[in-house]
Amino acid sequence: MPRATVSNATRPAEIVVVENVVKRFGAFTALNDVTLKVDKGEKIVLCGPSGSGKSTLIRCINHIEKHDAGRIIVDGVELTNRIADINSVRCEVGMVFQSFNLFPHLTVAENCMLAPIRVRGISQSEARDRALGLLRKVRIQDQAGKYPAQLSGGQQQRVAIARALCMQPKIMLFDEPTSALDPEMVKEVLETMVELAKEGMTMVCVTHEMGFAREVADRVVFMDRGSIIEEAEPETFFKAPRTERAKAFLNQIIH
């Protein structure tokens, strides 16, 4: 259900609500009155030039960055300074980073098992079954006993996706998941993400992979200088961007 404009009324399907959010780093305003609503099952691609605030926005959604003003409500829980609220949101929100951020001293399986055991409180054997199941899903089950450094970049990123999924999140955030990869490994990570999208996962992805955006996004959200400038269905956005800034951006990334 792509929408060109977002209404202010809260509807039950909305799982992420970002309202008038402001985030400053010293004198620099990274997010300037940003409002974004994401429906359950919706796939959103965030794009924009570097420094436009897209990474900051998704990092606010799981409170890795603390917003200075406005409201963020995830799955009915508003993010305030309460640790309990923050942690309950983080349990429902999986995140995949540009630089993978796997735990180098733990095996692939252990990377996937730690948080479900320590945070969700499930047993060792259940965590192992879940981890192996999800590692199979990202086609990397043979590597379960290896350490991250023994894997290729693409494999590491797929482990990172599996690790996030092991928490059984309702929403997945992707922060430029393919930007640190060698070109030949981009595809395997994108395929995993497409598969996840087809299963109905709610996804917010910061990416410049326009093929991916075309294939799975319900909406493309274009940001510049801390504000959302334009949002539209992928076809509309790529073929007929309304703003000059979006046109300029698309020209740059296509060439």
Binding site: N62, I64, R90, G94, M95, L102, M167
Partner: peptide, 9 residues
């Protein structure tokens, strides 16, 4: 950040 994202204490 990975620990935070996983809600680890």
């Amino acid at each position: 950040e990975a620990c935070q994202a996983l809600a680890l204490s």
